[in-house]
Amino acid sequence: MEFEERLNAIATKVRNQREAIVTEEATKNAFVMPFISSILGYDVFNPLEVVPEFTADVGVKKGEKIDYAIMRGGEVQILIECKKSTEPLKIEHASQLFRYFAVTNARIAVLTNGEVYEFYTDLDAPNRMDAKPFLVLDLGDIDDSLIPSLQKLSKEVFDLDSVINEAEELKYVGSLKRAIAAEFREPADDFIRLFTSRVYEGSITMKVREQFTGLVTKASKQFLNDQVNDRLKTALGTPGFASTTSEIEAKSVSSHEAAADDLDRDTEIVTTAEELMGYQIVKAIACSEVKPERVAQRDSKSYFAILLDDNNRKPIARLHFNGKSTKYLGLFDADKNETRHAIDSLDEIYQHADNIRASIRSYA
């Protein structure tokens, strides 16, 4: 199983079992130990690799324990402190990590509740753990851009120097992305004032600020939707395409709720964000031939199927992603024989728009 597939499998496990895990010990057994084993690749039952309840006397603090220490070559490389999954992580939870980081050889410290993993190092001062993580992995919403750096901490390809070199950029880019996302969700006063001053020439009174709070929030959301829809609309490619259908599709492709409703409920099947985005692109292309509601999807263990009228005998395309390094778009000829086309990015689906439309017309 590929690294991304294992990561998605852990994410599914957390999602399915989260409600049943209410203690710290249960969090360790159900979530953290499988993460150490299947994602980081260390044998949790081998004390030469993973030491549970790791103890090191720290100043006047005697007998304090850290939940796990990951060893390489007889030296501590990674420290892991766990909290129960029902608690959001706070920097106050990391007090033992701060102390242990200074008295061991560890360069990486991890604070986790089994769903969110915060990775720390010592960018700000040598041998002193930073107050902010350089990498935050949320299994409920995996950021694919973090996967290569996370993989470098695994036993198989352990590359600590490379991770430390990337840590500063990861730290600030990640923080900026979270800050930008927070502004779009709930704009701060400074954000509102900045854009209000760009478009409003009068004095920014309390009444004006209240009015523009709603306007800036609305404009921000519309801007994000427009960016997504503009890219998807390029797939339609027909000058005379009816505006009413465009409006229907624009509403469709910008709806996270609609995509979520499409997910297969089979807990052994992992439907990824990339598959859903690929589905929406194919759906947008198909809308030049049929109404959007006729384009359906079914996920399976081996591929993500896109069908006309939810009919297996009317395949439009298949997405062969499944966490592999090379992704394939499966297209069908008049005899329903599938040919796989390697793609490096979702944008390349647009290049096959004519084939997708031809498949739909063959079923007319």
Rank of each mutant, 00 (worst) to 15 (best):
S85H: 08
V282Q: 03
F134C: 00
L40F: 03
A317K: 01
S300Y: 10
A286M: 00
V60T: 08
E115S: 06
F119D: 03
L160H: 09
I356P: 06
D144V: 12
D344Y: 07
E49S: 04
G278E: 10
P126C: 02
D144E: 13
D344C: 05
E201C: 14
L89M: 10
M206R: 15
H320T: 09
N311S: 12
K324Q: 11
D309C: 12
D264T: 09
I180C: 14
Y68S: 07
D67L: 04
L137C: 02
R128F: 09
I39N: 02
A296M: 12
L150K: 04
S37C: 05
S38N: 08
E87Q: 10
P52F: 00
C82Y: 03
T104I: 08
K218I: 11
F31A: 04
T271I: 02
D43H: 08
A284M: 08
L276F: 09
V253G: 03
M277Y: 12
K84V: 05
F35N: 04
R107H: 07
H320E: 06
I360C: 11
S162A: 14
V44E: 02
F304H: 01
H341S: 11
A131E: 15
D122G: 06
K132E: 14
P239D: 07
I306D: 06
V173L: 15
E348N: 05
F223G: 12
D354G: 06
K291W: 12
A260W: 10
T339A: 13
I360V: 09
E19C: 03
K28A: 04
M129G: 05
L308V: 08
R15D: 03
E338P: 01
I164P: 05
F241D: 10
L97W: 03
I78N: 01
N105V: 12
D67S: 02
I142N: 02
D122V: 11
E75H: 14
D161A: 12
A26D: 02
V157C: 13
F321H: 06
D141C: 06
A30N: 01
D262V: 04
D354S: 12
F119N: 04
D122C: 04
E257G: 15
L111Y: 01
S145K: 14
Q280V: 11
A125C: 07
F321N: 04
F45C: 11
F31N: 00
V295I: 06
L123T: 10
Y350V: 13
V216R: 02
T267W: 10
K218Q: 14
R18H: 12
E338T: 05
V14C: 03
A296S: 09
D344P: 10
E19S: 08
R361T: 09
T12H: 02
E75P: 15
S85A: 13
R318W: 01
E275G: 01
Q151V: 10
V58I: 06
R209A: 15
T86C: 08
F158A: 10
Y172S: 06
I204L: 13
F223I: 07
Q211N: 14
E186I: 11
L160R: 08
I281V: 09
L111K: 02
R99S: 09
L319I: 07
Y328V: 05
D261E: 12
I281L: 13
K83C: 00
E348T: 07
A259D: 14
